[in-house]
Deep mutational scan, measured.
Amino acid sequence: MSIQHFRVALIPFFAAFCLPVFAHPETLVKVKDAEDQLGARVGYIELDLNSGKILESFRPEERFPMMSTFKVLLCGAVLSRVDAGQEQLGRRIHYSQNDLVKYSPVTEKHLTDGMTVRELCSAAITMSDNTAANLLLTTIGGPKELTAFLHNMGDHVTRLDRWEPELNEAIPNDERDTTMPAAMATTLRKLLTGELLTLASRQQLIDWMEADKVAGPLLRSALPAGWFIADKSGASERGSRGIIAALGPDGKPSRIVVIYTTGSQATMDERNRQIAEIGASLIKHW
């Protein structure tokens, strides 16, 4: 058993032996400061991975655009179909130039040979490839079927209504393609630790998130040596930015963190910096 498999397999085991986890309101002070700095709403939640207890939250039940963070949920739905014998990670999917949409750094290189379902999930999560996400959405029946999958998990909040890139429109008060921090954190925890997916599929999902290559300026920039993080970021119109993550010290995840912001006029660099500073406060007061 690899170190990674050891880590995921023991998450339920550690729940019975973990020390009490204490919240630190200092992080919420930073979240509120980020709102002031960005001139935008910020949603935040910090969840204990083992118990599911909410440690801190700010606007946990307000809607925010999901942006590309939905791609983790999408690959969770794909893995659920794999577990049920309805899909194979090794199945190759062929597509054409007409299928390519904006920001497809991986799929645009494989027009001649296509990509496997496994490769598409990797591209969608680690590189946020939009065509990969659309191709995967097609395999499960489209955005409405992803919403149905989430409903069956008990998440009646999170919804996907459109495809890439239209889902990134982020119109104020538009509930399409949105979630709430509390709903996203709970759903992510179920995917990573619950019985919905097999152990192998849970491991695969967290491996893809751990290999994320496009979230460096966010929480990863504040991470001390030896800490673990598996994450997925997102960005969209109207100053929207977000990240969902499982992270913790000693090389294993122990908390879920979800951060969303929307409605800012700030630059992408400034949005990144504010999220990184929230992460730094979280780690300092861990």
Score class of each variant (00 low, 15 high):
256 I>S: 02
229 I>T: 01
69 T>H: 10
268 M>Y: 07
89 L>S: 05
89 L>I: 08
227 W>V: 02
176 R>Q: 09
240 S>C: 13
126 T>D: 10
177 D>Y: 00
146 L>Y: 00
256 I>T: 00
286 W>A: 00
35 E>K: 00
175 E>Y: 11
19 L>N: 15
285 H>Y: 13
145 E>A: 13
25 P>A: 10
278 I>K: 02
188 L>E: 00
283 I>C: 07
6 F>C: 13
253 P>S: 06
105 P>R: 05
206 I>Q: 11
160 L>M: 08
251 G>M: 12
2 S>A: 11
122 S>N: 12
12 P>Y: 14
107 T>C: 14
193 T>A: 14
247 L>Q: 01
163 W>N: 07
38 L>F: 06
3 I>C: 12
253 P>N: 06
84 A>N: 13
137 L>C: 03
205 L>I: 08
225 A>T: 13
236 S>C: 06
270 E>R: 07
178 T>P: 01
214 V>L: 13
100 L>F: 12
156 H>L: 12
50 N>C: 11
180 M>S: 15
209 M>L: 05
137 L>Y: 07
116 T>S: 11
30 K>E: 03
225 A>D: 14
168 N>H: 03
75 C>Y: 02
215 A>G: 10
195 E>A: 09
217 P>K: 11
90 G>M: 11
267 T>N: 13
63 R>A: 03
134 N>T: 01
167 L>F: 00
42 V>C: 06
87 E>P: 03
12 P>S: 15
118 R>T: 11
149 F>S: 05
61 E>D: 13
117 V>R: 00
253 P>Q: 06
186 T>C: 14
189 R>I: 05
266 A>H: 07
239 G>F: 05
259 I>T: 02
239 G>S: 08
44 Y>V: 04
150 L>C: 15
106 V>A: 09
165 P>G: 03
63 R>N: 04
172 P>D: 14
222 A>C: 13
10 L>N: 07
170 A>S: 13
270 E>D: 09
159 R>V: 04
81 R>C: 05
48 D>N: 06
264 S>G: 15
103 Y>F: 10
147 T>P: 06
263 G>E: 09
92 R>H: 15
220 R>A: 02
270 E>V: 10
78 V>E: 00
247 L>D: 00
14 F>R: 02
269 D>A: 13
23 A>T: 06
91 R>D: 03
37 Q>R: 13
113 D>G: 11
174 D>Q: 05
113 D>E: 13
19 L>R: 09
66 M>F: 06
222 A>T: 13
280 A>V: 11
254 S>E: 15
122 S>E: 15
187 T>D: 12
25 P>L: 08
63 R>G: 02
221 S>T: 12
252 K>H: 14
1 M>T: 06
115 M>L: 12
21 V>D: 04
100 L>K: 04
184 M>V: 06
198 T>Y: 06
52 G>T: 04
69 T>C: 02
82 V>L: 04
281 S>C: 11
93 I>S: 00
213 K>T: 09
216 G>S: 09
4 Q>G: 15
123 A>G: 04
19 L>P: 14
181 P>N: 00
199 L>R: 14
7 R>W: 09
89 L>C: 04
81 R>S: 07
193 T>N: 12
115 M>C: 06
251 G>R: 09
239 G>H: 07
111 L>P: 07
32 K>N: 07
5 H>Y: 13
242 G>S: 06
66 M>V: 09
82 V>P: 00
83 D>I: 00
259 I>S: 01
163 W>M: 08
37 Q>A: 14
244 I>A: 05
224 P>V: 02
239 G>T: 08
167 L>H: 02
89 L>V: 05
75 C>N: 00
74 L>A: 04
277 E>I: 11
218 L>A: 02
46 E>K: 06
252 K>Y: 11
57 S>Y: 08
269 D>T: 11
178 T>Q: 01
222 A>H: 13
57 S>A: 12
197 L>M: 07
91 R>C: 02
220 R>H: 02
8 V>R: 14
81 R>W: 05
206 I>N: 07
254 S>L: 09
100 L>S: 03
158 T>F: 03
74 L>S: 00
225 A>V: 12
100 L>W: 04
160 L>V: 11
177 D>K: 02
65 P>R: 03
224 P>K: 04
19 L>K: 11
284 K>S: 11
218 L>M: 07
147 T>L: 02
284 K>H: 12
280 A>T: 15
99 D>I: 09
63 R>V: 05
174 D>P: 00
226 G>F: 04
172 P>E: 14
10 L>Q: 07
214 V>G: 06
229 I>M: 06
29 V>G: 12
57 S>V: 07
143 P>L: 01
168 N>S: 04
40 A>H: 04
162 R>L: 02
246 A>Q: 03
281 S>A: 13
44 Y>G: 01
240 S>T: 07
182 A>D: 07
13 F>C: 14
155 D>N: 03
57 S>I: 05
183 A>C: 07
134 N>S: 01
284 K>V: 08
202 R>E: 07
240 S>Q: 07
84 A>S: 14
93 I>G: 00
61 E>T: 14
60 P>C: 08
138 T>G: 15
158 T>A: 02
52 G>Q: 04
31 V>G: 00
238 R>P: 08
147 T>R: 06
38 L>P: 07
111 L>I: 12
225 A>C: 11
217 P>H: 12
94 H>Y: 14
222 A>Y: 09
149 F>G: 02
260 Y>T: 00
201 S>E: 00
158 T>S: 10
194 G>L: 08
143 P>Q: 03
80 S>Q: 15
86 Q>I: 13
4 Q>V: 13
284 K>C: 09
273 R>K: 14
